[in-house]
Amino acid sequence: MQNITAEELKQRIDSGEELYIVDVREPGERAEFNIGGVHIPLGHIQAMQVDELEEWKEKELIVYCRSGNRSGQACMLLDTMGFTNTKNLVGGMNKWLELGL
């Protein structure tokens, strides 16, 4: 697992880069605000219900949550499942909104 900042991710989204993004928050949190990506709550990752991500195992996978804690846990779990390039969004959506991105 590596880290990515909100500023770095925003710049990459704005440049139109093809990104593989996973939101691990709960449905209610996602409904309030999200930056896109596949929605797989952390509990599903903990239960190893990640079939929809299987084709992304070799891709750079950017994972986010509200604060960066759950996404960090998700990255560690995904790493143990054979994902080779996970990145945790530091500060999560809290940081994203704080910076006004």
Rank of each mutant, 00 (worst) to 15 (best):
E98K: 15
E8G: 02
D23N: 05
K87F: 07
I45M: 07
A6T: 06
E54W: 09
F83G: 02
N34A: 06
V22S: 03
Q49C: 09
L42A: 05
L101R: 07
K57E: 00
A31R: 15
F83L: 03
E98V: 10
W96K: 04
V50Q: 05
C75R: 00
L89N: 12
H44W: 15
D51W: 07
W96L: 10
S71H: 06
M48S: 15
I4A: 10
I40E: 06
M1D: 12
D14K: 02
N88Q: 14
E54F: 10
R25C: 05
C75S: 04
E8R: 13
D51T: 13
E54V: 06
F33V: 12
T5N: 10
L89V: 12
D14S: 03
W56P: 01
C65R: 05
C65G: 08
V38A: 13
G82Y: 00
I45V: 11
V90H: 14
V24G: 03
E55K: 15
G92C: 13
K59G: 00
R66W: 11
I40P: 02
Q49G: 10
R12C: 01
E98C: 10
I62D: 00
G16T: 00
D51E: 12
E60Y: 07
E18D: 06
G28P: 11
A47T: 08
S15D: 01
G28C: 10
L19S: 06
L99K: 14
Q73C: 14
F83M: 07
N34D: 12
F83E: 00
G28S: 13
I62T: 00
T80G: 11
G37N: 04
N85G: 05
E26L: 10
G91C: 11
K95I: 05
I40Y: 04
L101F: 13
G43F: 07
G28A: 14
A6I: 01
E7K: 15
L9F: 04
P27N: 10
N69Y: 09
Q2L: 10
E17K: 14
E98G: 07
F33R: 10
M93R: 09
C75Q: 01
L99R: 11
G82H: 00
E52T: 09
T86F: 05
L53V: 08
N34F: 10
T84D: 02
A47G: 12
L9V: 01
